[in-house]
Amino acid sequence: MTDAIVVEGLVKRYAATTALDGVDLTVAEGSVLGLLGPNGAGKTTVVRILTTLLLADAGRAEVMGLDVVRDADAVRASIGLTGQYAAVDEYLTGFENLEMVGRLYHLPRAEARQRAGELLERFDLVDAAGRPAKTYSGGMRRRLDIAASLINRPRVLFLDEPTTGLDPRSRLAMWEFIAELSDGGTTILLTTQYLEEADRLADRMVVIDRGTVIARGTGDDLKAQVGGQRLEFTLARAVDLAEATRRLRPLAVDEPRSDEQSRRLSLPVRGGTEVLAEALRLLEGSGVEILDVGLRRPDLDDVFLTLTGHATEDAAAADADTTTTGREPAPTAGSAR
């Protein structure tokens, strides 16, 4: 399979900071790449360079074999972009927004209108088609924005944090749209702060932190790197922890950890649900009373803790000042002020 996106040694510096410090990545045609990282990691900067909005200081990037600097116009004609903020004209209706974008892709008027109609239907915006976008909810705006990026049937689509700020229902709907597009053969690069989102949508993931790639692979690769899954028990009585640990030790692939205060026992294990069944069998007749038991997979914070030795800055900040409310999100280096 050929690569729809090739990025080599991308560097971008701003006055005081280095937003990208030599990023390499490839995206196979027809696949979905999840670009994962906390705020300020440089995700948006990568997207902006690939979509010709920003010039890199070093390195090169190609989309569908076209250089993003030399062949910028040809790149623009073959991509779609949905940025972090829904870039729709508030005063235009949904239909007018899509028609305008179609005309700017140089579709004949009739075709631009027809395409606008199709996309409004597909994104469930037919009822709102004649209303100015100002009256749309956040989820509707985001859908209109994605519809606009699909007008020209792009072969490569860039989605910059497509679900940030959406309510859970809109997020699920967005996931379905993205999965459908991918099934249709569109190559997608999506950025996200959520491992769950990348895991669900992406074939492969690239994790970046402070402008550098710190991990890459499939979701399972990443989780394996982090140490795979853990079996977690919460017991009714703290005194049972020792007995439970003694009985379960044969299953652990690494040192089990127990915590008296929360009455919790955590065992690194390998395998699927059969481990869970085996563990329950080992505890039979021991008198240990179990309140809760589960197999837990690592999330982005676990990935970060393992790979970088520090938590994501957001998690660290949340821990540090839990009393502060309404805290502004950390400014992103990637937002290219």
Binding site: L81, Y105, H106
Partner: peptide
């Protein structure tokens, strides 16, 4: 401010338009 210029700049339209 509203990100519309970003959208326009990502389209294959005339740079002066």
């Amino acid at each position: 401010q509203k990100g519309l210029i970003d959208r326009f700049r990502s389209l294959p339209m005339a740079r002066s338009a």
